[in-house]
Design a protein around this nucleic acid. Structure first.
Lengths: 342, 342
DNA sequence: TTGTATGCGTTATCAA
DNA sequence: TTGATAACGCATACAA
């Protein structure tokens, strides 16, 4: 405090006439403390505007107060939702959120992340899909002595280290909805190979078709990369089939937007000639025309829960790890035209 | 190293038979060091997998290695772009990026941010619009002993603390482009009052109109909130004017998407009946139909530069602080129909 | 070119 | 219930 520096625990101790250790006890809310002393010290703390030095605490405690968010995710809305969810949990704590976008195609991915965790000595990390599906990565983080929570679209780890949506069921229900609307020629745009979410959604599609008594037709199924352009390409393929679909489920919104463009370019009217359902409920979904019927999963709540699992490993297993999704019904999926007339 | 702990500088010193200080010199790349000693120590470091403890360094150096990103921004794509830009710069350094979404309407905004900076003892912070326009906030960060760079849409601080686009000029050019396409009834959707960017864009509109010899007509100008719904509402207002516009500049993409919906609901064809230009080049812009002509500013480069200014205050003033924007010409703005026939 | 003693701000140990 | 002293891992001042 002497000069223009920030006050330290020593300043507080001196001014309140107690030892450093006593101040430390006040900071750490130790129960064995005389109320009078506590009050005295707290007054000085307030008066000085003293804030404990987190780096010094980290050193002495041999632990850190940093949570890492590691991701390689093309969906900005989702990443930001996750950040907000994590903040919901840690806002009132000493933890801070450190972000690290990575490139999943980098040959040095593992080493990069290892270096990051070691250098910053993270307390815990949250892994977002698709890299959350990498078991080696998760194991490495654990070996580095860092708690881990993986966000995914299926049970890809034990409860304490998982927050997941149930994509299979969600897609199955979306397809059931299309069937309910009278559609029988239902197409599908898959996500990229190797993505767990892509597989889950595909399984959900097959399951939903089966439940509706429908048979998936490979002629109106295509694979995309989750990107807009791939959705457009897949759309061209599907729509040029001999017997084109009257409805298509796209494994994410961005590809659904691409499909919409493909339909427009062929002079088709959406939703009259073609119903579309997407997945993710990104900002785009509500802003395109027609507004897109899509699957929304509770990103923010999941992320908030994940953060709690990270900083309270004790209660981690008890917190929920599976979260239900909702079908958001907008204007892009309508009853099959002429259905009533049949 | 003794037990299962991470190796420290002491372990390295002992195993390589030198003092701690010598190891410290190796870590810090001190020039006055015998090459042989350096090699010997580096070998031990590699063998042990030793990583210096950043918290201990922070304590000894009385500085930290954390950069903060403080924002209350509705545009996810932009925030993520900023994060990636900052990472481009700090990836090879010891710095980490800590994020803090805030609520600009919170009455305790200043106190929240102060607590955050003090607690984490940030080295520097980057402020995103619209809160970057808050002079009191910027000053507080500075007073807290933390370097600051503000991202904005005009010169709102000195070079060392600024990365900005020139929104006024960009909008002026966009309007010039509409005029070139033959439009004379050009409408405008403004951003929310109190936003510097909104003012700059409005000034740019007026300037562009003047340059084209056109007079802005208040009957086809409206104010929005930068959100989708406000764009739709503004659109309804503009399009129900006695003499509706044949082209509209919207102060951001999201409102442009809303305007598009309003046009559709009135049975108008975009772009045949109405040309639209937006601002930001968000993901949505390319994915709506028709693809939106819009203004793109170099977010990632700006953020990367901002990070450099933060961590190298010396060269900060020298780095560029004003960045040019581009008009991305897509399909939503076309020549005014019948113009040639006139 | 290298080493010794000391400090950074906090917590843990153990005694009072 | 409190306090003196020694860590925590690293950097700086000053010597050698």
């Amino acid at each position: 405090m002497a000069n223009g520096q920030k006050p330290t625990i020593n300043d507080v101790a001196r001014l309140s006439g107690v030892s450093k250790k006593t101040v430390s006890r006040v900071i750490n809310k130790s129960p064995l403390l005389n109320d009078a002393t506590r009050g005295k010290v707290e007054a000085v703390i307030a008066q000085l505007g003293y804030v404990p030095n987190l780096q010094a605490r980290a050193l002495a405690l041999r632990r850190n107060f940093l949570l890492g968010l590691i991701h390689d995710n093309p969906n900005a809305q989702m990443v930001l939702g996750v950040q907000e969810g994590i903040l919901d949990t840690i806002r009132a704590t000493e933890f801070a959120l450190v972000v690290r976008p990575v490139d999943r195609h980098s040959p040095t991915l593992l080493d990069d992340i290892r270096g990051f965790i070691e250098q910053q000595r993270l307390y815990g990390v949250m892994l977002l899909p698709p890299i959350s599906e990498n078991d080696n990565l998760a194991r490495m983080c654990l070996d580095l002595g860092c708690t881990v929570v993986r966000m995914g679209s299926a049970r890809l780890d034990e409860d304490a280290r998982l927050v997941a949506s149930n994509d299979r069921q969600a897609v199955s229900e979306a397809v059931a909805w299309l069937a309910e609307l009278g559609h029988t020629r239902i197409g599908f745009i898959a996500g990229p190979e190797g993505f767990r979410s892509a597989r889950e959604r595909q399984d959900g599609f097959v399951e939903g078709m089966a439940r509706a008594g429908l048979k998936p037709d490979p002629a109106i199924m295509a694979r995309g990369t989750y990107r807009f352009e791939s959705g457009r390409a897949a759309g061209e393929q599907l729509l040029s089939a001999k017997e084109p679909p009257t409805a298509v489920f796209s494994s994410n919104d961005e590809m659904a937007a691409g499909l919409l463009h493909a339909a427009r370019e062929r002079g088709l009217d959406v939703p009259q000639d073609l119903s579309i359902i997407g997945f993710d409920d990104t900002a785009t979904a509500a802003h395109i025309w027609p507004p897109l019927t899509t699957v929304r999963w509770p990103i923010r709540t999941m992320a908030s829960t994940a953060a709690r699992k990270l900083i309270e490993p004790g209660s981690a297993a008890a917190a929920p790890s599976l979260f239900p999704s909702d079908l958001i019904r907008r204007a892009s999926a309508v009853p099959r035209p002429g259905k009533d007339a049949q």
